[in-house]
């Protein structure tokens, strides 16, 4: 019997591919966002509103991750921005290799913002770096305020939390203060935005933050 020391992260090959993706995005001056949430939190609808508010000032494209169907990419494309669908065929998350594979389908020099909508899942996507600059997560008020402590990794890795469907707050027992307190315990620097895609509220602050992040990546390219 013979022992071989390995000491290697299980996700090392994904991390390497993600770093490569990120370097590529920075070279082309594209800010990349990895948008994550449980199923039905409103990612695609939020994207549609965000695109409509920002597409006159920024060049946007979207990668849609779903287990199956092209429905989401079709919805996004109807807003006049390039959208590529990735079907994972059963897998519960996107990984860096899947993003690398679809990269040639975009003209990165002609983009300011690339949004990757991950597979709806509060667990698995949090572990996989795609090469994005920021992870942003959605939590809808219909899901319940107990989610931060039940899904700590997602809240820990997110740069910003978008609390969605806040127009429904009068009809659900969602304790905003308690949810945000738990989320901040997991992530002190978490940026929080409260939005409703249906009532179209809260989008100014969110888009302003996004704009700041896009400009930050642009300044890295010039430096």
């Amino acid at each position: 019997m013979h022992e071989i020391s390995i000491e290697s992260d299980i996700l090392a090959s994904n991390e390497m591919c993600a770093q490569h993706n990120r370097q590529h995005f920075i070279e082309h001056g594209v800010y990349v966002l990895n948008l994550m949430s449980g199923p039905g939190a409103g990612k695609t609808t939020l994207l549609e509103r965000t695109i409509d508010m920002m597409k006159d000032r920024f060049r946007i494209a979207v990668i849609e991750g779903d287990v199956q169907t092209h429905a989401d990419a079709d919805r996004i494309a109807a807003h006049g921005v390039p959208a590529v669908q990735i079907n994972t065929g059963g897998a519960c998350h996107l990984d860096a290799r899947l993003i690398e594979n679809v990269m040639p389908r975009f003209d990165l020099d002609a983009l300011d913002l690339l949004i990757i909508e991950n597979v709806g899942n509060l667990v698995c996507p949090a572990e996989f770096d795609l090469g994005e600059h920021d992870k942003v997560m959605l939590l809808s008020v219909t899901e319940g305020a107990d989610k931060p402590l039940k899904y700590p990794v997602m809240f820990h890795v997110a740069k910003a939390l978008l609390l969605t469907k806040v127009d429904l707050l009068p009809y659900v027992d969602f304790d905003v203060q308690s949810a945000l307190r738990d989320a901040r315990v997991l992530n002190l620097d978490l940026q929080v935005f409260q939005l409703s895609s249906r009532a179209q509220t809260g989008f100014e602050a969110w888009c302003e933050w996004l704009e700041g992040r896009i400009k930050r990546v642009k300044s890295l390219v010039r430096a």
Partner: peptide, 9 residues
């Protein structure tokens, strides 16, 4: 999430 070592023959 790490692989530390293996025993081989």
């Amino acid at each position: 999430l790490r692989v530390l070592s293996i025993e081989v023959e």
